[in-house]
């Protein structure tokens, strides 16, 4: 499937900012399920490409002019292949690194209690356990836009029973790790079929490592595994290490207005 992505983010400030730096993880990598045909990242300021420790293709965007607005865009075409959401490991980091809890995926007693029913299955048949876990979490957590923020943790989402794709991925990852299954966070895009309405955010899901099979994706927000409609952008331990955009600025007031427009269409 050929998918066209047009992703534009605009930050507006009431007071001018004088310097900003951002890490952009906005470039998809080639892998067995996706091949980049054409891709282009642009931003206001100066871009320097680099690769992070997870192998993600990153850019550093520095803007040192006095501005009230900063825009970043990523556009391109990706050819995807249906692999039922299973990917081999890229061999960059030891897989067991993905067992490590992070601030956003901290394990607490609630998560510990929640995974108890899956402990047995996780030992005998991890893939089944992952599916059961995914099923249970989609029933437990209702997809609710605006119910969380970028620093919300897995435990917050489980307690509130609400969240967006990022929170659902975090809870799933925390639970999987607690069950001894390496899990990683994936940010990316999803082709929904609706070509008329732009999406207001990029997408995110989780993947667990199943020995002998590979990284299996679980998109809880859409109650599905990975499909040819998914394009992966970056992987990491959680949102913080794989966010498509992460920045700091000097100047500007407290308030920042961010407008995101993601158009995902079929070529």
């Amino acid at each position: 499937m050929r998918i066209v992505v047009r992703h534009r983010t605009v930050y507006n400030y009431d007071h001018a900012i004088r310097y900003s730096t951002q890490y952009l993880r906005l470039t998809p990598r080639n892998n067995p399920s996706q091949r980049v045909i054409r891709w282009n990242v642009e931003g206001q300021g100066r871009l320097s490409p680099w690769t992070d420790g997870f192998g993600n293709l990153c850019h550093t965007l520095v803007c040192d002019e006095i501005v009230n607005q900063i825009s970043v865009s990523a556009n391109g075409i990706v050819e995807t292949t249906e692999l039922n959401g299973v990917l081999p490991d890229d061999g960059i980091l030891p897989i067991k690194v993905f067992l490590r809890p992070t601030q956003l995926t901290q394990i607490d007693s609630e998560i510990r209690d929640f995974v108890v029913p899956y402990v047995e299955t996780a030992r005998s048949n991890p893939l089944d356990a992952a599916h059961e876990l995914s099923q249970a979490l989609t029933e437990r957590i209702v997809y609710t836009e605006g119910s969380s923020h970028v620093h919300s943790t897995a435990s917050d989402a489980l307690k509130n029973g609400r969240g967006v794709c990022q929170d659902m991925a975090h809870v799933f990852i925390a639970c999987a790790r607690e069950l001894g299954m390496p899990a990683r966070y994936v940010s990316g895009y999803l082709y929904t079929g609706d070509e008329a309405t732009p999406q207001v955010a990029s997408h995110a899901w989780a993947a667990v490592w199943i020995e002998g099979l590979g990284w299996v994706s679980f998109d809880l927000a859409n109650k599905t595994c990975g499909t040819e409609r998914h394009i992966g952008l970056a992987v990491g331990l959680d949102y913080a290490s794989s966010a498509p955009l992460r920045g700091v600025r000097e100047g500007g007031s407290e308030s920042e207005r961010m407008d995101v427009q993601v158009m995902v269409t079929q070529a």
Binding site: D52, G53, F54, G55, I92, L93, K96, V97, L99, R100
Partner: peptide
């Protein structure tokens, strides 16, 4: 790998 001081960003 379980050691919080192991820094994935230093990899490779």
């Amino acid at each position: 790998l379980a050691n919080a001081q192991y820094q994935p960003q230093m990899q490779g």
